[in-house]
Amino acid sequence: MSTTTPAPTRALSASRTTATAARVLRQLRHDPRTIALMVLIPCVMLFLLRYVFDGSARTFDSIGASLLGIFPLITMFLVTSIATLRERTSGTLERLLAMPLGKGDLIAGYALAFGTLAIIQSALATGLAVWFLGLDVTGSPWLLLLVALLDALLGTALGLFVSAFAASEFQAVQFMPAVIFPQILLCGLFTPRDNMHPVLEAISNVLPMSYAVDGMNEVLTHTDLTAAFIQDTAIVTGTALLVLTLGAATLKRRTA
């Protein structure tokens, strides 16, 4: 019999979290096409956008910066919702939760893995936009990257949460138009939010993507850290953490 005392289950264990993150990344490594798509599509879209607005550099600046915030949110939303759904349907989630794995470890592991990918994705997209496509940012590109990362975290959180309500991959994909599209419409990408019908503006005030985009635009137009920027990023972070907690509550050790 064992002569060792295994570590007990704690709410969060650093080594179990990193083991989970490493496992998720290892799974992705066996799927290079997904990685390529995740990393390249934002770059291609920005490139296209640059020449769609060939005549109006100002429009490219504002839409480009907004998209730098929206891409990581969408990609991470999609990969996380599918990945957790697969974890639920393949039985590995049941197995993991019968093991000494804290729910927090699992969620933090996913957030860490996809956060790493989001850093790569956003770094490439931001670099391309700022240095090659002439996106004109007044503030520091590092702040753009920071917001992109927080947006990725928010995407991961939303994806995780939503996957609890999807019984199949078909449903999971349909949550994307349901959860993401309204936010894209209302986040101020197409028209400033204060130009919208007051009802829509009020709705946009409670949607997290609005703050992701506002944050990006703050960096675009201000050299220093503005109070509005700090408020925007705090709202995005807070929402992400809140939704992650809600997501954790949907991971049930006991199921019907």
């Binding site: 295994p6 264990s13 179990r16 083991a19 989970t20 590995t92």
Partner: peptide, 23 residues
Amino acid sequence: PSVYDDLTVRQNLDYFAAILDPG
């Protein structure tokens, strides 16, 4: 069977072992 299809046999076991006996 509840294992990760996109991991090798050893990678699967490595992961579950790290959950059971971390550090």
